[in-house]
């Protein structure tokens, strides 16, 4: 029997550089190809990201949990996109409510007007909602009530995109919509939640009138910070009666690069 172990991989002597970045550097090589362990790690990340897009949100369970922590009423809705395949091909359908959901909303008894409609949507990652929405809303609703904002019933929308919140807010006569939505997953971020705030939302509202808080998750922008940022934006939006590019987060003068804008369009 041959006891000589075959050489199967060339490691990189600069592995210590990995402490500076999450990027897949110094992963070694076999010939010029990626070693098996790295190959499978990548595949696992991609599988998780694809699952985040395609595994449906258990919206009833999410609704029950939100009701439990917030003691607010939660209503289940569906966009006009009947399934995931249509949702991905027809962004316009994800921005509107289905006929059934329009009827559901129309039949609800409503106050003449409220301050804020909170909307939850699966977006491009059901994992993001499943993992993050309850702790985020738990903190936020306590803060909103302290500040005596009035709330419309919370809605959970399946197959929803950002703009679906405009139609919902209009139905409730809400002066502001805040939508919590699963962001397009990256390999290392399958569960990142995005929050979009719009003052005076109406169907047809364009993206420059929205403010966005991105990358909300335990390894990214943590819940306390996200809620702090969001409360700041909500208070400022009501004080100045506007939202969007004119309402920038004063602590952070960041504008989007063109490539980032392309990502936003995907919503």
């Amino acid at each position: 029997m041959n006891n000589k172990k075959l050489r199967t991989q060339i490691d990189n002597p600069w592995e210590l550089l990995r402490e500076y970045t999450q990027a897949r550097i110094a992963i070694g090589r076999c010939g010029t190809s990626v070693p098996t362990r790295e190959l499978l790690d990548f595949k696992m990340c991609h599988a998780r990201a694809m699952d985040a897009v395609h595994i449906p949100l258990d919206s009833q369970k999410v609704a029950d949990e939100i009701e439990r922590v917030s003691s607010e009423k939660v209503i289940l809705l569906h966009s006009a996109a009947p399934d995931r395949s249509q949702y991905l091909r027809r962004p316009d359908l994800g921005r509107k409510l289905s006929a059934d959901s329009v009827t559901t909303l129309a039949s609800l008894p409503k106050a003449t007007s409220v301050d804020i409609a909170l909307v939850v949507a699966d977006g491009l990652s059901s994992f993001a909602v499943k993992k993050n929405i309850v702790p985020v809303l738990d903190r936020l609703i306590r803060d909103l009530k302290k500040n005596v904002y009035t709330l419309a019933p919370i809605t959970v929308v399946e197959q929803g995109r950002v703009a679906v919140a405009d139609e919902i807010a209009e139905q409730f006569g809400a002066r502001m919509s805040v939508i919590f939505i699963g962001e397009r997953p990256g390999l290392k971020t399958p569960d990142s939640l995005g929050i979009y705030l719009t003052f005076n939302p109406k169907p047809g509202t364009t993206d420059e009138r929205r403010n966005c808080i991105s990358n909300v998750r335990t390894e990214g922008l943590v819940y306390d910070q996200a809620c702090l940022k969001l409360m700041y934006l909500i208070n400022e939006a009501f004080r100045r009666q506007l939202s969007g590019v004119d309402l920038k987060d004063e602590q952070e003068h960041q504008t989007l690069t063109p490539s980032n804008e392309l990502i936003q369009i995907a919503y």
């Binding site: 999450q22 990027a23 550097i25 992963i27 990626v34 790295e38 997953p185 290392k188 990502i263």
Partner: peptide, 12 residues
């Protein structure tokens, strides 16, 4: 791109 994974733009 390192390992084909762009950690900023979140695409491969």
């Amino acid at each position: 791109i390192p390992g084909a994974d762009d950690i900023m733009l979140n695409y491969q």
